[in-house]
Design a protein around this nucleic acid. Structure first.
Lengths: 240, 240
DNA sequence: CTACAGCATCTTGTAGACAATAAGCAATAG
DNA sequence: CTATTGCTTATTGTCTACAAGATGCTGTAG
């Protein structure tokens, strides 16, 4: 059954909360969100075949909206559809991981180059609250939640560029990154060194962004991304 | 009626010629290609409502595959769908144009940074042949064809990075750029100064790429993009 | 004359059914 | 015993039909 408890930007395709009040979301949207959630949570494993009939009864919808949802997920890179063969959860090779990480890095740098110094202070609010959420997770020693909060923070940070297409592309890349993590569950545990240090690094990054020093922020972002890249690449090399 | 005379990478979603021989393309693919073509050629104007029933009889298919094609085009940014209201060809604001051009620039730079020096010489082949096509168009004084060939050249150039996701994102941006041009038809005529000079600039760019001098190629790309940006931005300011 | 309410029509959203193809299995021949 | 061929089954691709909601018009009241 569809359960659309909309999560952060990294998790859902999420319509704006305003429009969702006015327009009841279509089954296509709900189905896409539900399946995306199950893929990213690891309930559907990479490579797993997604039987349409099975999904229809699982979500209590019929096939047309389900198939439309598949198209959406396909364009997001979460599933691949082979004609007459069916749809499968994307299996990521090491090259895919490389592509995802490099593209993410470029998009983040673009956001900083366009967005710093921040013209509209309101654009920083989401990043600030996301950081608070991170620090809360760190204080509670909730590593899994911290990772997700980190994704939301990065997404919010990219938002300072006030660039719709950049946001869209970045969200897509982030989702695939979450798929990487679903592949090697170890990453979820060994990714980060120390929770407080992790949160502190992100606070430092945000402060540099707020200061308006573009080059300093970009430099920090570089080492920031470097760390993630190494962790993920090592991890992928171990398991892949 | 669907007429899938597959064009260059900028125009079609184009399945590989090999697989198209084995697997008959689905109606969804054919419909998406056909509609995309009509949108980019200007047959369907920006803002125009796309009636499902009308499209079904125009393409001689039924609504389910058509609706799936809509999802694809929606994710490509060519149409927008408002729930219970219908689908419309995307209307681009000046900010949209700004976003498209900046994103394109970043993606091209990324391709150069990752792809130069070119490791696999075969990756340069598509760019070389695309350039020849450009020069042919210039010689024949076919301005419209030259512009399209230019798009194919740039797409081929991005291909040197050997980066699937980058290619995909770039193709998407390019399609929206073509949508810009469908908006202001003037651009198609006044965009370029001199046909031969235009082709020569592109040859120069390719030669720098082939030489392996990344910085020089990036510098040339910068002025290259600068020109397009100004032309497009001015043009959009005039008409938008 | 204008504004609001109610209705008719049209369009989208969804469901269920049919047809075509691919995968898996079994039987037979070598 | 193995490989190949034919069939069976299951799953995708597509179509037609029904339901729900939105738009536009018309009629009436102020």
């Amino acid at each position: 059954m569809i359960d659309n408890t909309a999560s952060g930007p990294a998790a859902g395709g999420g319509a704006s909360p305003l429009s969702s009040l006015v327009h009841p979301p279509s089954l296509v949207t709900l189905a896409a969100d539900a399946i995306r959630k199950k893929i990213l949570s690891g309930e559907y494993e990479p490579g797993e075949r997604l039987l349409e009939e099975r999904l229809t009864e699982e979500l209590s919808i019929s096939r047309p909206p389900l198939r439309e949802a598949f198209r959406t997920l396909e364009n997001e890179g979460l599933i691949v559809t082979r004609p007459r063969r069916g749809s499968f959860v994307s299996t990521l090779t090491d090259k895919d991981v490389y592509e995802i990480l490099t593209l993410r890095s470029v998009l983040e740098r673009m956001a900083f180059e366009l967005g710093i110094p921040v013209k509209n202070p309101a654009l920083l609010e989401p990043a600030r609250s996301a950081l608070l959420e991170m620090e809360r997770c760190a204080a509670e020693k909730d590593r899994g939640a911290l990772v997700l909060a980190g994704y939301n923070f990065h997404y919010a940070l990219v938002g300072i560029a006030d660039h719709q297409r950049l946001n869209h592309a970045y969200a897509s890349v982030q989702r695939q990154l979450l798929l990487c993590m679903a592949r090697n569950l170890i990453a979820r545990e060994t990714f980060y060194e120390d929770l407080d240090h992790h949160a502190a690094r992100h606070r430092h990054l945000l402060e540099l962004v707020e200061s308006g020093d573009r080059d300093a922020a970009l430099a920090e972002l570089a080492v920031h991304g470097e760390r993630s890249f190494e962790s993920m690449a090592n991890n992928s090399a171990e398991t892949g």
